[in-house]
Amino acid sequence: MVNRTKSKRVAGELMDKDTMLDLYHEMVLVRRLEEAFETLYQEGKIGGFLHLYIGQEAVGSGVIGARQPQDRVITAYRDHGIAISCGIDPKSIVAELFGKEAGTSKGRGGSMHLGNTDLNFWGGHAIVGAHMPLATGMAMADKYRGSDAVTICLFGDGATNGGYFHEALNLSMVWDLPILWVCENNQYGMGTAVERASAVTEIRQKAEGYGMPNERVDGMDILKVYEATSKNLDLVRKNGPFFLELMTYRFRGHSIGDPERYREKEEIDMWRKDDPIGIFRKHLLSTNGLTDAVLDNIEAKAQSEIEEAIKFAEASADPSLDSLFDYVYVD
């Protein structure tokens, strides 16, 4: 497993080689996990909806790779990759999707509600935009207590057309809260293209209306994502909210069962040429003196971790029926 909390990184600093290899491993781990979920879902082993992160790995790994341990992360329902980047063991992720007691949320949340507060990952949230006010409140609490933590809130382009987005961005500026707003612009809200749903297609422009500094960055290249995040996390710690728009693309449908009538195969193929793992691999081979053998070895390791995770989850227990009422009330 990647140890996400091992090094304090200086803002703007380029990644060292070990960090790069960790993050390469992490991105491959996410890819293999999602491919496995696709199969397991078709085999009927996973209930509910399934939203895959394939194609967007550089966003999660780049953004969260740059955070400090005290920084909170909260995201929407496409959360498997974010969970891995936050350091959650794939075993407990697979177990959650299987509905097992050993899952991150004890089998109560499922695919869209992964979380681990010890690792400062505050969830996967399934109502579009609704976690943005939650992020506002968490950042308010950190400021209230004098902590230097930043809350990193990831959301899709689709969320930026709803009321929560505007209420939360506005309040974050009014209260001057330490939040890094990260828009994962994968260019579709379900099947509706950005230009069909948003009055401005450059989402970062919406931050302008709130006087919030902002930037649009290539979300397929982890080095660019990492650098932009490091730099801007530092700004947030000093100055308050920042809005980072990351241009990305999901290679699979919105969820399993999406007939994908809304986009052409040529468009998908074009984006696939920018596979974030491919881009990173090319970089590692060309500038860091790494060999195919080293990277293939990392990929094989990731593959076996996922296989182990599936075995673990299959063997682990369902919650007992007696526990039905657990966690409804504390008192």
């Binding site: 006010p133 968490m138 950190d142 209230y144 209420e167 309040l171």
Partner: peptide
Amino acid sequence: GERVRDTPIAEGVIIGAANGAAMAGL
């Protein structure tokens, strides 16, 4: 003003931010 916080007229973020602050232990 830190403990008696006036908010905009925006009920979604009033309750949402309160939920978030509660998650964080306040």
